[in-house]
Design a protein around this nucleic acid. Structure first.
Lengths: 157, 157
DNA sequence: CTAACTGCAAACCTTTTGCATTGAC
DNA sequence: GTCAATGCAAAAGGTTTGCAGTTAG
């Protein structure tokens, strides 16, 4: 599609994309964008709020919800449920590409995002086969990660 | 209930699976199971409730939620969010296999479930590659279905 | 300057829970 | 008969909204 192929600094990418969309860039939006962009794991709305609150004590929950909604409808973040392993929460992720793959362990609740040639190839084939102009593709697998499999092999419950 | 026992009648399969799990089969559970099993489309909790209410005016919402939860934790139905095209609702689907593929059109909100050799093959390869004992796999694609693509080609916005 | 955004509080909507009663096994 | 499931009502999330004051462009 139209993604720039030069990587801006971590924590700046989403901010730039907000400006590029012509959206007003307030202090709160900048803060939230930097948080989402720098996040090491998937965050739900409450986690985003609590992290933001530590940097700006006056930010309000409703601003977090409004901003997440705004980013979502502009396609800048995606909303995930990660197989509901942790209840009804939704998680937000800066859209790194149109194709997300998540392996969610129902035992330890860990989330892996595998990469490599197999998965790259898979993306291409799926897009081609679909007869569907896919904007977002999510492949989510719920099951047991390899370390939980080993643990359960040693000590079956 | 007096049909020959060749293959379980549509609307009876889930009922049988409930009994097989040793769960108590109440009238409400039977009704909900038949609804889910016979559903032509994906239903959310409210839709299940309203359909059930037409057949049993005294059924309560909380029973619907409790039953959906029960079926979910026993792996008899899966909970989907269908890319949130229709808000925060969750949809329930009798688990036909461990692998669901949904193509969700963000334009007309239609949901397709493609089948065929490509997708069968994909399931096998993904399961093998993952190094992950996958219990449930969901592949969801959000985009434009072929008829919406055609419509937009004729009349671009 | 002005439309858009924010904080606040209240409303909303879906889902969960405690309790007395009912019903499946 | 016993224990689990149900209906009911109330609570508990999580999210949205109307409003008045504030701010980015």
């Amino acid at each position: 599609m139209d993604s720039p192929r030069v990587a801006p600094r971590a924590g700046e990418r989403l901010v730039n994309r907000i400006r590029d969309k012509g959206l007003r860039l307030t202090g709160q939006r900048r803060l939230l964008a930097e948080l989402l962009d720098g996040a090491e794991q998937h965050l739900d709305a409450d986690a985003v709020y609590r992290l933001a609150k530590r940097k700006d004590g006056s930010i309000h929950r409703s601003t977090v919800y409004r901003t997440l909604h705004l980013l979502k409808i502009h396609g800048l973040v995606d909303e995930l449920d990660l197989m509901h392993v942790a209840g009804e929460r939704h998680y937000y992720e800066v859209r790194p590409s149109a194709f997300h793959i998540h392996l969610v362990c129902t035992s330890c609740r860990g989330v892996q995002e595998p990469g490599g040639p197999f998965w790259e190839d898979l993306k291409k084939k799926v897009a081609k086969e679909a007869g569907f102009r896919a904007e977002v593709v999510r492949l989510e697998m719920g099951g047991r990660c390899s370390s939980c499999q080993r643990r359960e092999f040693r000590k079956p419950d």
